[in-house]
């Protein structure tokens, strides 16, 4: 009796579960179907997919018309390079945070004192700029003023205890991109803008707008906090004693990091990289703003299809399917580990 009931319960749950699963997945499925239709079938009413002939021509046309492969290469390059760069920066940072924690802030000044210093520095900048008529024509004056504010802030960060440093890193991730868009845009776009005429070097030669390296750097910076957080939480689980034993046996710092620590934390490192790959691959705000041709990644490429003069839905679908498939597979494989990174370690 009880068994029959529980079987019926399972059957009901199966129906509900599958219904919702299919509903959630439906837009993706619909896209996939449209990708295999011919362009005229995609507009034919009523829509159906059983009787229309299936075709692969959309995929070929997408490549032919707009050199799809180039966007894939750009995206892959940005993703791989920024992940590698972030990894190189994050491993030492997470290592030192996890194994040599600083209990107390090393500076004796309180947070309020630092705040006062920073406000004072900004005030000083304000006065200098005001006297100068809000024009910075000299490289050294501009740089010096910037440093006047940035250096105290940096020292403040350096002297935090370990939890403080970690939280500060997290907080950088929370700054809305809208707040950083203007300076980043102007720094990237140097053709005749503010940062071109600072005297000693002609920065116009190093225009970062729409360049692969600019995007790589930016993506690295964007994801570095999450990277350090996740690595930190994985390193935490490795007993310090093992590292100490290695050190006793005469392992150099290099060996300690690469022969002992990294192999032990390999699953963690891999899942961190996967999360980073997913986030970078799907990033849209900065790619839409800072690239347009040479360095444009896939998300930019897809957005081109929003233009009203070209409503090629079957092609749009084909391009979309190609763009999301790799990341969907990676995401499905790493869903367990993702939870940790997506909540900054708050839920395991």
């Amino acid at each position: 009796m009880a068994r029959a009931q529980s079987n019926r319960r399972i059957a009901v749950m199966t129906i509900i579960g599958w219904t919702i699963g299919i509903l959630m997945f439906f837009p993706i499925f619909w896209t996939a179907v449209a990708a295999f239709k011919t362009e005229s079938d995609a507009y034919t009413l009523p829509q159906n997919f059983l009787t229309t002939p299936w075709t692969l021509e959309n995929f070929a046309i997408v490549q032919e018309r707009s050199d799809y492969v180039r966007y894939v290469v750009n995206t892959t390059l940005i993703v791989v390079l920024s992940t590698a760069l972030a990894l190189a920066l994050a491993v030492p940072a997470a290592w030192s945070l996890a194994f040599t924690p600083v209990e107390k802030p090393t500076s004796r000044l309180s947070g309020r004192a630092w705040l006062a210093i920073m406000l004072g520095a900004s005030g000083a900048c304000f006065i200098v700029l005001y006297v100068n008529g809000w024009k910075v024509s000299n490289f050294f004056v501009g740089f010096g003023l910037l440093m006047l504010v940035v250096i105290p802030a940096t020292i403040w960060v350096w002297t935090r205890n370990t939890p403080g440093t970690l939280l500060w890193m997290l907080s950088t991730k929370m700054m809305p991109p809208a707040g950083a868009l203007i300076p980043i845009y102007l720094i990237f776009n140097r053709n005749g803008l503010v940062f071109a005429d600072w005297g000693i070097v002609d920065l116009r030669e190093f225009n970062l707008m729409d360049s692969l390296w600019g995007m790589v750097l930016l993506m690295t910076l964007l994801n570095l906090p999450i990277f350090i957080w996740m690595l930190f939480s994985y390193f935490k689980e490795i007993p310090v004693a093992i590292l100490e034993a290695a050190r006793m046996d005469g392992a150099s710092l290099w060996n300690e990091l690469f022969r002992v620590l990294m192999p032990m934390a390999l699953p963690g490192i891999v899942s961190t990289c996967l999360l980073n790959i997913i986030l970078t691959w799907n990033e849209a705000f900065w790619s839409l703003n800072l690239t347009n041709k040479n360095a444009a990644p896939l998300s930019f490429f897809i957005s081109e299809y929003s233009s009203p003069e070209g409503q090629f839905w079957a092609k749009l679908s084909a391009a979309s399917i190609m763009a999301i498939t790799p990341i969907l597979v990676i995401g499905w494989f790493s869903q367990r580990q993702l939870v940790r990174g997506l909540t900054f370690g708050a839920v395991k």
């Binding site: 959630m24 997945f25 849209a284 839409l288 979309s320």
Partner: peptide, 15 residues
């Protein structure tokens, strides 16, 4: 169910 989260925003908006 979790698939939509991995779709890039530009793709999902256009679709």
């Amino acid at each position: 169910v979790i698939a939509p989260f991995f779709i890039m925003p530009t793709v999902s908006s256009l679709v």
